[in-house]
């Protein structure tokens, strides 16, 4: 009897821990560069992301080769010359939601979030702090944020010939729908 009770408690604890995690393998990230010469946009629908609501840990990881550009030549230059995606295939963010206590994950609604953590692009890691939102919709969390990234901060070298075509600060839009792990 005691053994059955212990086993049941372990199963219940494991299930509860599992239920604290929200995940997706197809989040969306877009980046946008605007200059008087050219506007450049790329989309990635293969973003891997996880949120643990027991401690606020939030992570997303993205394959550089999954960014799609309208122009094939631009995609080629992005991968081969700027991001060197054969050597450094992924970019990632690993951090924490700072205001977990102000979010009720059991009540549908839109909540402001503050996130702090490490952003790694092109093998270079920087501490960032940003705001965004969580929309709670039943067992889904729609995480959104817009922030800016300077290629120069991540050792991304833009050729002089195309310097005027790429913004000094790139707008990154994160739109990730996470599902509760069953």
């Amino acid at each position: 009897m005691k053994r059955i009770f212990t086993l049941s408690a372990i199963i219940l604890i494991c299930h509860t821990i599992q239920a604290q995690k929200y995940v997706t393998k197809n989040g969306h990230i877009k980046f946008f560069s605007e200059t008087p010469v050219e506007s450049i946009e790329a989309h990635n629908n293969q973003v891997n992301s996880a949120l643990d609501i027991s401690n606020g840990n939030f992570i997303f990881k993205v394959l550089i080769k999954s960014f799609e550009f309208k122009k094939a030549l631009m995609q080629e230059h992005f991968n081969e010359n700027y991001m060197e995606s054969d050597k450094i295939p992924n970019a990632m963010f690993s951090g924490k939601i700072e205001n977990m206590s102000s979010i009720n994950f059991n009540a549908d609604g839109v909540y402001d979030v503050q996130v702090k953590g490490k952003l790694t692009i092109h093998g270079v890691t920087k501490e960032i702090e940003n705001s965004g939102s969580f929309e709670i919709k039943g067992e889904k969390i729609i995480a959104k944020s817009i922030f800016h990234v300077k290629p120069s901060d991540y050792d991304i070298k833009i050729a002089k010939a195309v310097e005027d075509q790429i913004a000094k600060s790139i707008e990154v839009t994160v739109d990730i729908t996470l599902d509760k792990m069953q």
Partner: peptide, 12 residues
């Protein structure tokens, strides 16, 4: 093949 994101190999 886009690569491996430490969880899955991704083909698109």
């Amino acid at each position: 093949c886009s690569g491996f994101n430490d969880t899955d190999v991704i083909l698109e």
